[in-house]
Simulated scan of single mutants.
Amino acid sequence: MITITKLNGKTFQLNALLIEKIESFPDTTITLTNGRKYVIAESEERLKELILIFYQSINLLGRKEWEGVDNE
């Protein structure tokens, strides 16, 4: 889950695995796989960072601290 902020300043948790599309026009809009949309205060770049951190925390993309370590 990632914590993001609605335009009214309220924060909420979102399952990043359900994100289908991220757009900026000019506000950042998230479209989920079920078609639901959220307009958020975070920039598109910040949202990408949060998603990457979440994916790494659940070992979906590999752990960052393991980068460059050869398999034995």
Rank of each mutant, 00 (worst) to 15 (best):
F25R: 11
A41F: 15
S43Y: 03
E44V: 08
E23R: 07
L60D: 09
T28G: 06
N34C: 07
A16R: 01
D27F: 15
L52E: 15
E20T: 00
Q13L: 14
S43C: 01
R46N: 10
L52Q: 04
I51M: 03
D27K: 11
R63E: 14
D27S: 10
K37T: 14
E20R: 12
E49S: 09
E45W: 10
T29N: 11
S57F: 06
L14T: 03
I40Y: 02
S43R: 06
E42H: 02
D27W: 09
E44F: 05
L14H: 01
K48N: 13
I30C: 00
A41G: 02
T29Q: 11
L17G: 11
S43A: 00
E42S: 02
K37M: 10
L60M: 15
L60V: 11
I53V: 10
E45P: 04
L14N: 04
F25P: 00
K37V: 08
P26V: 00
T28Y: 04
K37F: 01
E23F: 03
I51K: 07
S24Q: 13
T29S: 13
T29I: 15
S24D: 08
A16M: 06
G35A: 10
I19F: 10
A16Y: 03
L52C: 02
L50V: 07
E42V: 06
G35P: 02
L60Q: 07
Q56K: 14
L47A: 02
L50G: 07
T29P: 00
I40T: 08
Y38T: 05
E23H: 10
K21P: 02
